[in-house]
Amino acid sequence: MNSIKSKRIGSRALVYILLLLGVVFAGFPILWLISISIRANGEVFSSPPSFLPKVVTFAAYFKIFQSPEKIRFFINSYVIAIIVTLVTLFISMLTAYGFSRYDFKGKKIINMVIIGTQTVPPIALMIPYFGLMVVFKLYDTYGALVLTYLALTLPYGILMMTGFFNTIPKSLDEAVLIDGGSRLLTLFRVIVPISLPGIVSTGLYTFLLSWNEFLFALTLTKSNEMATVPIGIQLLMGQHSYEWNEMMAMSFLGSLPIMVLFLFFQKYFLAGMAAGSVKD
């Protein structure tokens, strides 16, 4: 009896030790980012390094807020991510309705192609996109990024929404159809309200993909006015790579929307993440 008990305590201790290591591993870089962002730049490489700033200052944040150029990076990222999310959701819902409510010729093949498109390397699309955007005069505009991001978000959005719609019984929309309602009406009056959790999950994941995108933002825009946050960080890095406190403040602000969304909508976020790899 005693040996079982001590074994229990032993395995409990092991779990706690591993958890503590995990917390340090996962959390330290983020705490360090914040800690550097609220100190004076002279204190970044102080020796020996201190984990907490000796003097807390938000100067780096003020500097960013006072620079219209840097605020513009954030505006660009927000505008693009919001448009991409809304368009992705709308088109995905239409497509998912078609997939979940009808049987039609080519459905299986189209479905497989959509699963397959998730694995197309962005670098292979980059060269033709560059040509395409120059020809259609979309180079260095929001349009270039919104359009190309849809290629990344739509396959995922369609598959995920189809999964959610499939869980809604067909008898629900048939009731509306019998009453003479149109298909579109059924979709937006009946199915959409019920599948709100799925829509939130899909929307969050889409927003994240768009917010984080780097390659197309790098190659399809060139002016500072069109730069998104990731590109803005790269620009800052080239301009004054020694102002680490400002870079970290920028990084913190750049991660803030995702962190806030994550904390508020954790359940939906996790559902979206799990569905990102496990689609039914």
């Binding site: 996962a26 870089p29 984080n212 990731p230 890095m237 970290m248 962190m259 994550f262």
Partner: peptide
């Protein structure tokens, strides 16, 4: 929540945080 954090960061931000560390 803590364990998921590393996944929430943009590659560009991950890159510079680790460059600093």
């Amino acid at each position: 929540v803590i364990f998921i954090f590393p996944w929430l960061f943009t590659p560009a931000i991950i890159a510079i945080v680790w460059r600093l560390i």
